[in-house]
Nucleic acid binder design. Structure first.
Length: 821
RNA sequence: GCCGGGAUGGUGGAAUUGGUAGACACACGGGACUUAAAAUCCCGAGAAUGGUGACAUUCGUGCGGGUUCGACUCCCGCUCCCGGUACCA
């Protein structure tokens, strides 16, 4: 009889053993012939303490990594820190200490927590993105993008607080006001850095087809985000002016139905018209008081005002009033749209509100439609469209676009919803943008030999403008080109920059001479399995795909070496909830992983998070379930006690032994399936619990029974290893396995043990279950029907009916369709 | 608003992807062991009706329709909840 299962002692013991043995390290040895497997969980923001979402994410990934090692792969499973970001600045403001201090302390704290969970990382490869040896390569790549014209500066709207004199993140705008001082937020134009992701829109869209290992929903979200649409660019004239008003429309077939134009408040025409129109100027000012959040813009009341200007219709030459509308966005398309109230719902509502004319130019192919009542938005046949009358919508799109092209008033164009990536932030705790502003040379990029531009780590933000802007030793710099006194750029990069390439950097994380070592990329990339929250479905995952292609095209690796896509398979895990809401400090519904580990041990925490819900669904936290997971480990521990005490003097019923072996090998098949398809670990663990119950119920009487029992227990131990590695290792030791054997090989299914001569069929009468029969495994319809008629309940149902049809699903069911006599 | 997803017993969830709805677990109830409790082991359980009972019947996967021999699963129309919405990460 062994001692009670002592999680704390066991976990300490095995963590030390694994660290000493180096089993978790990924081998770069070219002589290592094992197939590679790159398993990556999204690295955390070092916010202070590990939360349950992290635990779930990393336990999932660790189970995959450990399983793959057991299957003989050379596994790369790294960890690091997405260390720049807003929360560090917020903490710094509150504590009046530099964000670097807080960040490094958090990293140390969280690293300890990850180690305590027994996650099998190759810690030699740890990355912190706030280190200059990491972000220098981002700066290096960025200067190349600028040279290629893939990065540029342009004006963009930001949320601005007049009082704090600073740019606000969307998160810092609460009900249209500054979160700190409650001042009404206004939109302001600033010169910003962009990366031309739209130049890659087509490839990012097309390569979605390569992502067969991604959830369909994520692919769909990216497809919609990129939002490719084909339409026409149309050039309207402006009355009494040389200017033109360019718009894009996906419905050139409705061109003859335009009754007004709508431009954004920030559009030059609107600004110009407001100069001698105080009423309009007031309206434009009001429009600037909505945050830049898309949801805010979309939900606000649709309002507008005429500019007094008129556009000239490119075909008819008609005068068309130009309105300013608050729902037209400057940063999207050309900042202007043509409005066809008869055939667009939003235009229709706007026209109704302001009494604008509604002109029908498309009719349904059959029947009539009253456009005064509602917009007709489907395709149809053109009417009141002059020479285009009678054309179908599709043909009309072609014809009208062709006409515009012939007359130099437009052309066919592909438009993306995707906008260029705004990468500059007016913040301190981020990677410096490697540019210098020179009075003589203009904007000059920092040359390679002066990289990295190191961020001073000892500043403390106050909540106003970034402390970098007033930090002389940072700002004052000689122009790299002419040598005269110049000013350093004080904007920093969006933190998505760092998280967009870390997956590739992990392949050669310590390389000081290149951003990526092509040989290392070839060895490890792309990531075979990426795991992280659904909330990253679009932004992070799109930027990372983009960045991978940028690095490829910068010549750091070829398609053949690193692939065109960074992540082959993606698992998007659900959130951890409590009382129906996402766990968060502000809601006060967090569960501290540390307390859990101290009370029950890391293995219990691991087992519960994997068992409580399927990985891709949200996990509702209940403390009670944790005890259940712990109880299972204790129960299995006692099963080994029972195995050790088994007596083998008697004789076993071989049929029963065979049945046990069948259960064991069915379970091996089910658990293996979970690892190979979809990672439904909750079901895999349930299967292991079920088998444990079966093993408990089995009583070995002789050698054969004892052997089958031992085989079953050993199989469960091995299959538990990816989930509860310390526990499994200790059980393995009790069973006499070699020191590292438990984490070294995966049990195989013995096909012979699965064989069975008979099957149980459900018998249905007209689709309702009325009984069960046991027949030979190859039984045909006649044999099954004969057996069914022998079932009293089935026979009773057949008594007063005629059989209309019989459906036999082999191995599953027999459905007898009847009608009353 | 737009894009994506979800809803199954008291609870978390399962259902081989159109074939026995509720595996496994939690909570609960009963029994065994114990002086007692804890722990452990065994058993029970969707709801309703009938039957002493084995059992049988009806209803049942958010709501309303449809397809099918058969629907949690597919189609059409809704409701509510969650994620994203470009400066949270």
């Amino acid at each position: 009889m062994s001692e009670r299962y002592d999680a704390q002692a066991i976990e300490k013991k095995w963590q030390a053993a694994w660290e000493a043995s180096g089993v978790d390290l990924a081998s770069d040895d070219p002589a290592d012939t094992r197939e590679k497997y790159y398993c990556l969980a999204m690295f955390p923001y070092p916010s202070g303490n590990l939360h349950m979402g992290h635990v779930r994410n990393y336990c999932l990934a660790d189970a995959v990594a450990r399983y793959k090692r057991m299957r003989g792969f050379n596994v790369l499973h790294p960890m690091g820190w997405d260390a720049f970001g807003l929360p560090a600045e917020n903490a710094a403001i509150q504590r009046q200490r530099p964000p670097a201090e807080w960040t490094y302390a958090n990293i140390a704290q969280m690293r300890g927590q990850l180690k305590r969970l027994g996650l099998s990382y190759d810690w030699r490869r740890e990355i912190a993105t706030c280190r200059p040896e990491y972000y220098r390569w981002e700066q290096w790549l960025f200067t190349r993008l600028v040279n290629k014209g893939l990065a540029y500066q342009a004006e963009a709207e930001v949320n601005w607080c007049e009082d704090c004199h600073t740019v606000l993140a969307n998160e810092q705008v609460v009900d249209g006001a500054c979160w700190r001082c409650d001042t009404k937020v206004i939109r302001r134009n600033l010169k910003q850095w962009f990366i031309r992701i739209t130049a890659y829109a087509e490839e990012l869209l097309n390569d979605l087809d390569k992502l067969a290992g991604w959830p369909e929903r994520v692919v769909e979200m990216q497809r919609n985000w990129i939002g490719r649409s084909t339409g026409a660019e149309v050039r309207f004239g402006v009355e009494d002016s040389d200017e033109t008003l360019d718009i894009f429309t996906t419905r050139p077939d409705t061109l003859m139905g335009v009754t007004y134009m709508a431009v954004a408040a920030g559009h030059p025409l609107a600004q110009k018209a407001a100069l001698n129109n105080p009423h309009l100027a007031t309206f434009l000012h009001e429009c600037a008081q909505v945050s830049t959040k898309e949801a805010d813009v979309a939900l606000m009341e649709k309002r507008g005002l005429p500019t007094g200007l008129c556009a000239i219709h490119p075909v008819t030459g008609d005068r068309i009033p130009i309105w300013v509308a608050n729902f037209v966005l400057m940063g999207y398309g050309t900042g202007a749209v043509m409005s066809v109230p008869a055939h667009d719902e939003r235009d229709h509502a706007f026209a109704k509100t302001y009494g604008l004319p509604i002109r029908q130019v498309i009719k349904p192919r059959e029947g009539d439609w009253d456009v005064e009542k509602a917009a007709f938005i489907d395709a149809g046949v053109l009417v009141d469209s002059g020479e285009f009358d009678g054309l179908e919508s599709e043909a009309a799109k072609q014809a009208i676009t062709a006409w515009l092209e012939q007359h130099g008033k437009g052309k066919q164009r592909v438009q993306y919803r995707l906008r260029d990536w705004l990468v500059s932030r007016q913040r301190y705790w981020g990677a410096p943008i490697p540019a210098v502003h020179c009075g003589h040379c203009g904007v000059v990029m920092v040359p390679d030999e002066q990289l990295p531009v190191v961020l001073p780590e000892d500043l403390t933000p106050t909540g106003g403008a970034s402390p970098l802007t007033t930090y002389e030793s940072f700002v004052k710099v000689d122009c790299p080109q002419c040598g005269k006194a110049a000013k350093r750029e004080t904007d920093t990069f969006d933190t998505f920059m760092e998280s967009s390439w870390y997956m590739d950097r992990y392949t050669s994380p310590r390389n000081e001479s290149v951003m990526l070592d092509a040989a290392a990329v070839q060895r490890w990339a792309p990531v075979d399995q990426y795991i992280g929250g659904v909330e990253h479905a679009v932004l992070h995952l799109l930027y990372a795909r983009f960045y991978h292609k940028l690095m490829r095209d910068a010549g750091l690796f070829s398609s053949a070496e690193g692939g065109d896509e960074p992540f082959v398979n993606l698992l998007t895990q659900g959130m951890v909830l409590k009382d129906g809401a996402k766990m968060s400090k502000s809601k006060g519904n967090t569960v501290d992983p540390n307390a859990l580990i101290e009370e029950f041990g890391a293995d219990t925490a691991r087992l519960f998070t994997l068992f409580a819900a399927p990985p891709e669904k949200d996990l509702e936290w209940h403390d009670a379930g944790v005890e259940g997971a712990n109880r299972f480990l204790h129960r299995f521990w006692r099963l080994i006690d029972r195995l050790e005490a088994v007596e083998t003097a008697g004789d076993d019923d071989m049929a029963v032994v065979q049945q046990l072996r069948r259960a064991v090998h069915l379970t091996i098949g089910r658990v293996t399936h979970a690892f190979e398809h979809g990672f439904a670990f909750n079901v895999a663990i349930a299967a292991l619990m079920e088998l444990t119950n079966t093993l408990y119920a089995f009583e070995a009487k002789g050698e054969a029974g004892a052997a089958a029992l031992r085989e079953g227990v050993a199989a469960v131990v091995k299959m538990l290893a990816p989930f509860v590695p310390h526990f499994a290792a200790e059980c393995g030791e009790r069973l006499g396995f070699g020191k590292l054997a438990v984490i070294a090989d995966w049990p195989a299914v013995d096909e012979a043990a699965l064989a069975s001569d008979s099957v149980t069929l459900v018998v249905q009468i007209a689709g309702k279950k009325r009984g069960e029969i046991t027949v030979g495994k190859d039984a045909g319809q006649e044999e099954a029907m004969a057996a069914a008629r022998n079932e009293p309940n089935v026979a009773r149902w057949l008594e007063n009916s005629d059989i209309v049809k019989v459906v036999l699903v082999p191995g599953r069911l027999l459905n007898i369709v009847v009608k009353p006599k």
